[in-house]
């Protein structure tokens, strides 16, 4: 098949990580190099100790060769995440707006460059907590009545990865609801005409 079965339902976490790796991040290089031109743009020059912005994939590649230090994104700090977690818990009606690819970015940075982060173990557990609080909210939200209107669901504040986890289930559920709906209308119609 042109597209393997497991890819037919939507993007996989690996593919989402691939997209996250196109996003730009700051690094402090430990080597000198002039500007580099790649297809997505021109990056550099690389002059230690000043920082420069590169796509995440390049940062990771340099990091694996011990040629740079990755500057943690503003949100990937213990205090910041603690605050976000607290807000997320307090906000019962919705989801906080988080960086679009915080799960993927957080994971690759913790895997590849834990030594560039402050208190990586704590960051890891905070990210996990944050994700679990949000997952719990999603489950709760889906249980509440009237949420599934058959063919529409508003899902503000969720990141693509979280949405992808839900999509196969929701699409299927909506399909089932759609097959049920016309009959319901028919029945209502009958009821009205008889009275």
């Amino acid at each position: 098949m042109a597209l393997p079965k497991h890819l037919q339902h939507g993007l996989t976490p690996d593919e989402l990580t691939f997209l996250a790796e196109e996003e730009v991040i700051s690094i402090v290089p430990s080597f000198s190099m002039t500007k580099i031109r790649v297809l997505s743009g021109v990056y550099g020059p690389f002059v230690p100790p000043s920082s420069t912005s590169v796509p995440l994939w390049m940062a990771l590649s340099l990091k694996r060769k011990r040629k740079c230090r990755i500057v943690a994104p503003e949100w990937l700090q213990v205090e910041r995440l603690q605050a976000l977690l607290k807000e997320e818990k307090e906000n019962q009606d919705g989801f906080n707006k988080l960086p679009r690819r915080f799960i993927e970015t957080g994971k690759v940075l913790l895997d590849v460059a834990p030594d560039d982060l402050h208190l990586p173990a704590q960051l890891r557990s905070l990210l996990k907590d944050l994700r679990e609080v949000r997952q719990a909210k999603i489950r709760l939200g889906l249980q509440s009545e009237g949420v599934m209107q058959g063919s529409y669901l508003q899902m503000n504040g969720l990141t693509p990865l979280e949405l992808m986890e839900l999509k196969p289930f929701l699409v299927k559920a909506m399909g089932v609801l759609q097959t049920l709906e016309p009959r319901k209308e028919e029945r209502d119609g009958y009821g009205a005409s008889q009275t």
Binding site: D93, G94, I138, V147, L153, Q154, M155, N156, G157
Partner: peptide, 11 residues
């Protein structure tokens, strides 16, 4: 999400 709340989040 799921309804009104959450404010449109016009980041």
């Amino acid at each position: 999400m799921f309804g009104e709340g959450g404010g449109g989040g016009d980041g």
